[in-house]
């Protein structure tokens, strides 16, 4: 967090593409098509998309677990395949891909050693993290005995073992109960508050909506939408009226006024549209006209939103 000042790009992808091939080198799936993306220091960035949309591929490319077919993925300005960038990264895998035969302490110790962290520092951090994620009491139990929620927590703890600047979270709330989900979200926000950059991918829209500053929506390997969450969800042709202490008369009056102006009263008492609607509409649209990029006028509305749409190239 000290290395990069706010506003600089931590992650940058340039026309990043990935094609899966079979053994003979024949093309199987185009998992990612010319993705351009930038993630800035200190923000929570959400990758959104249905299963198979390419968000996991993106994360794996960023981590160097996959090699790009074309284009570039830069993390902290270095190629994603460069191992040394990993020093500053924390990663919470989708399912916790951890060794089930280790207990929590051993797990953290193991990953700590992989960062070449000296013993005392390691010990201290382990203590802190175990408390942070709330599995202090289960520290001696093997991971195989853990519930899904606890596994997520230990997963998060191992992702933070090196006090990373960039944290990649793959489905951080999947399998968590509502309270767990809330706690996870709080932790994510807390991390952002510490100045860390968080990239999370999820298909749970509510989570994304709650915590993310900016989101990108992927579908069939293509970027469909990118922007600040608040501006994306602002429905411009919809006016939302919220008031307090209105009498029934007043409400009727308002209805009349709207009617008079040729408006349509949609709803009186419920707030904005949800991300879910947005998401579904994009997916529907994308499926109807595959390949066409939906760029709503609102997408570029945000102040510091970057990113010329991908189709601009």
């Amino acid at each position: 967090m000290s290395g990069t000042s706010p506003g600089t790009a931590v992650i940058e992808t340039r026309a990043l593409s990935k094609v899966y091939r079979d053994f003979w080198g024949r093309q199987k799936v185009r998992a990612l098509k010319a993705l351009d993306l930038e993630v800035y220091q200190g923000e929570i960035f959400g990758l959104l998309g249905p299963n198979g949309s390419g968000k996991s591929t993106t994360i794996k490319l960023l981590l160097g677990l996959l090699f790009p077919t074309d284009g570039q993925a830069l993390v902290f300005g270095k190629e994603a395949t460069d191992v040394s960038k990993n020093e500053r990264i924390g990663y919470l895998p989708e399912e916790s891909y951890l060794y089930k035969f280790l207990n929590a302490e051993e797990t953290l110790d193991f990953y700590g050693r992989l960062f070449d962290i000296p013993a005392e520092v390691r010990k201290e951090r382990i203590e802190k993290l175990l408390k942070l994620v709330g599995i202090d009491r289960a520290r001696k139990r093997q991971l195989r005995e853990y519930s899904k929620g606890m596994t997520r927590r230990i997963g998060l703890a191992q992702a933070l073992i090196n006090d990373p600047e960039l944290i990649l979270l793959d489905e951080p709330t999947s399998g968590l109960d509502p309270i767990g989900t809330r706690e996870m979200k709080d932790m994510i926000l807390q991390l952002r508050d510490q100045g860390k950059t968080v990239v999370m991918c999820s298909h749970l829209l509510a989570d994304v909506q709650d915590v993310c500053d900016r989101i990108a929506i992927l579908h069939q390997g293509e970027l469909k939408e990118l922007g600040r969450v608040d501006s994306l969800l602002t429905v411009e042709d919809v006016t939302q009226v919220r008031a307090r202490n209105l009498s029934d008369d007043c409400k009727n009056e308002l209805r009349d006024v709207i009617q008079r102006h040729g408006g349509d009263l949609l709803e009186m008492d419920n707030p904005t549209t949800t991300l879910e609607d947005l998401f579904l509409s994009i997916v529907r649209d994308s499926e109807e006209r595959p390949g066409r990029r939906v760029v709503g006028p609102q997408s570029t509305a945000g102040g510091d939103t970057p990113a010329p749409p991908a189709t601009a190239n």
Partner: peptide, 14 residues
């Protein structure tokens, strides 16, 4: 196969 190696290789492991 268990993908446990993913987690390992995302650390600065050569």
């Amino acid at each position: 196969k268990n993908k446990t190696l993913y987690t390992v290789t995302t650390k600065p492991v050569r």
